[in-house]
Amino acid sequence: MATKARAPATAPIKGRGAASYVPGRYEATTIEACDDGWDARDPGDDTAPAPHPDTRVHEEAARGIISRNQSPDLGFDQSINPYRGCEHGCVYCYARPSHAWVNLSPGLDFETRLFAKTNAAERLRAELSRKGYRCSPIALGVNTDAYQPIERRYRITRELIEVLAEFRHPFRLVTKSALVQRDLDLLAPLAAQGLVNAHVSVTTLDNRLSARMEPRACAPHTRLRTIRALADAGVPVGVLVAPVVPAITDHELESILEAAHEAGARAAGYALLRLPHELGEIWKEWLQLHFPDRAAHVMSLVRQMRGGRDYDGGFGRRMQGQGPFAQLLAQRFARTRRRLGFPGLPPLDTSAFGVPPAPGAQGQLF
């Protein structure tokens, strides 16, 4: 793969969250482009960011599909991500640094060079059928959105849900896409059996701000309608106010919770802006392009909540932070959740899990 030169970002790119090809931390060499005033770039040169970089999808065969984690501050120990990279282009996405593992930029490459695990359903069926598999709820789409735009074409998430339904395996969905409504014909009966719940993430209620922060994700009002559609179909649904960005979105915390509760959300959670690895550089570049007047203030507040650093990944601190500002956010959230009376989501049922008979298998009559 050709090495891309990173040109200094002088303006946002329409329809994209990142503004440049921030190099990954494993790159042996990087090329830094600069403007010498001659503007002699060859129109055929593809080493600098195009004004409107296209999206390319690489189909890959996954060797395994269920990921395990032992993080004590996550509410699941198994997850599935049908895609790598995400076309939603959310500039704040904590999954961006994962693109460095495949020698791609966590910046523009993360939202334009995507990977679809086309054998995901086949691998899931094999892993659930293994002798000794122990059932626990699977989180679907927690790293990159399982319902991002390319799901319309690939339908990998729907195939995974069909397999989970065959095994009566409980799972959780996390999304910010209205495309989840396409699968209500599967989700509604599974919810009636206690096998699925969902969370819809809402970052802001400001359409213009959303278009800048998460350019190819659904608009805020569409996400609220998605919460309503899931609730009306009987799918237990909650809202995730994530990420909360100091001095940009934190003032909306109460209004987001109120709007989601009105739409039918039964549970609520929140998480602070997280800036691991290359994401810190991507985020600060975005701040300078969109909020130059308050960029320093935003980062000052971030560091106040992260022990003086851009990021603190310690368990128990990375989601809610620490310090006076973080404590104030936690108090505001707890007070609003208590006032609105979110009842919480019912537990998922693991007792119904079972391996279905193989196609053509015949049960014993006696």
Results as ranks from 00 to 15, higher is better:
residue 10 T to K: 02
residue 11 A to L: 03
residue 25 R to L: 12
residue 26 Y to H: 15
residue 37 G to A: 07
residue 38 W to V: 12
residue 41 R to M: 13
residue 42 D to C: 07
residue 46 D to K: 14
residue 48 A to R: 07
residue 52 H to M: 06
residue 55 T to Y: 00
residue 56 R to D: 10
residue 63 R to I: 06
residue 64 G to N: 08
residue 70 Q to D: 09
residue 70 Q to E: 12
residue 75 G to T: 08
residue 75 G to H: 11
residue 81 N to K: 02
residue 83 Y to A: 05
residue 85 G to F: 01
residue 88 H to T: 04
residue 90 C to Q: 12
residue 93 C to A: 03
residue 95 A to K: 04
residue 97 P to E: 12
residue 106 P to T: 01
residue 108 L to N: 13
residue 113 R to F: 06
residue 114 L to A: 08
residue 117 K to M: 07
residue 118 T to G: 11
residue 119 N to G: 10
residue 121 A to L: 06
residue 127 E to K: 08
residue 133 Y to C: 06
residue 133 Y to G: 00
residue 138 I to L: 14
residue 143 N to E: 07
residue 147 Y to W: 08
residue 153 R to Q: 15
residue 156 I to M: 05
residue 159 E to M: 07
residue 164 L to M: 15
residue 164 L to V: 04
residue 170 P to S: 06
residue 172 R to S: 12
residue 174 V to C: 07
residue 179 L to V: 06
residue 186 L to K: 12
residue 188 A to G: 01
residue 191 A to W: 05
residue 195 L to M: 01
residue 197 N to T: 01
residue 197 N to H: 06
residue 200 V to G: 11
residue 200 V to H: 11
residue 208 R to P: 01
residue 224 L to N: 09
residue 233 A to N: 02
residue 235 V to M: 01
residue 238 G to I: 15
residue 245 V to Y: 07
residue 246 P to S: 05
residue 259 A to E: 11
residue 260 A to L: 13
residue 262 E to K: 14
residue 265 A to I: 14
residue 267 A to Q: 10
residue 271 A to R: 14
residue 281 E to F: 10
residue 285 E to H: 06
residue 286 W to A: 11
residue 291 F to L: 10
residue 295 A to N: 12
residue 299 M to C: 13
residue 304 Q to P: 03
residue 305 M to L: 03
residue 314 G to Y: 02
residue 315 F to Q: 10
residue 319 M to I: 10
residue 323 G to F: 14
residue 329 L to G: 02
residue 330 A to M: 11
residue 330 A to T: 12
residue 331 Q to A: 14
residue 333 F to E: 03
residue 339 R to A: 15
residue 346 P to W: 11
residue 346 P to Q: 10
residue 351 S to F: 12
residue 353 F to N: 03
residue 363 G to A: 06
residue 364 Q to K: 14
